[in-house]
Amino acid sequence: MNETWIALKELGENRMAAVGIVIIVFLVFVAFFAPFFSPHDPLEQNLEKRLLASNGEYPFGTDELGRCIFSRVMYGTRISLEIGVVVVGITALIGTILGVISGYYGGIVDEIIMRAVDVVLAFPGIILALVIAGLLGPGLFNVILALAVTHWPAYTRLVRGMTLSVKEKEFVEAARALRASNFYIMRRHILPNCINPVIVLATLGIAHTIIFAAALSFLGLGIQPPTPEWGSMLKAGIPYLRTAPFLTFFPGIMIMITVLAFNFLGDGLRDTLDPRAKEMIMMKK
């Protein structure tokens, strides 16, 4: 417990991580309370007030159908965070379990899992996601599925490597000698040793996933209009790039801020959770 506290304290002292946390908390707040704070219904069209620049009634202006961009951007937070968290939750869990199994048992199980990892990694992630989402058709579920399929191998690889090294340690030998079950050893000795790097990877993974999801929607293969989603808002803004650039400005900056926040946090976590980074260097470079 004490150690967790120290880690948290160090994290708070890491300026970037602190900025990341503040932004993330703010975004989660926005996502939860969008219905209370958004000035308009994100789907409400008002064709008489199309493409208005920022004004008192519409802080970020209106889009090509006269919808409030500010409200749509607020609601967009929901879907991006949702996709990010769900995809990372699923993939981190599945990837970690497969990694532990692969590393712990080795042999044919390892071979099969690692070849599956190779197959997925043989392909640029975004392209595989694109093909899967494109073939299965647009929609939230398919986006999540496509991203999950491309995302799990990162965890499997990482955890497998860690498992292989922990497996050889004396305390695992000792546990085996005491006839501890495999499941017990994996849960009690191996998983705790993998958890920190997995947390780091997962945080950075949320950033990745949010960009990928927005990219899919941007290409018209993800979340479809009229659902307020940043990527599809960008796409819808392209024809008006000359006359109304704010249509593309606000969703884009939201994607960037969100992704940046998770990258900041992930980076800070890496610095605090990775003991190797803590080692001091006495001798000259």
Binding site: A207, A215, G237, R242, P245, T248, P251, M256, L260, F264
Partner: peptide, 22 residues
């Protein structure tokens, strides 16, 4: 570098078009 990784390239592309082309 962090800013660069966090910048969605589809957005960057649009911004560049808006600035340099339009």
């Amino acid at each position: 570098a962090l800013l660069g990784v966090s910048m969605p390239n589809f957005w960057l592309g649009l911004l560049l078009i808006w600035l340099f082309a339009l």
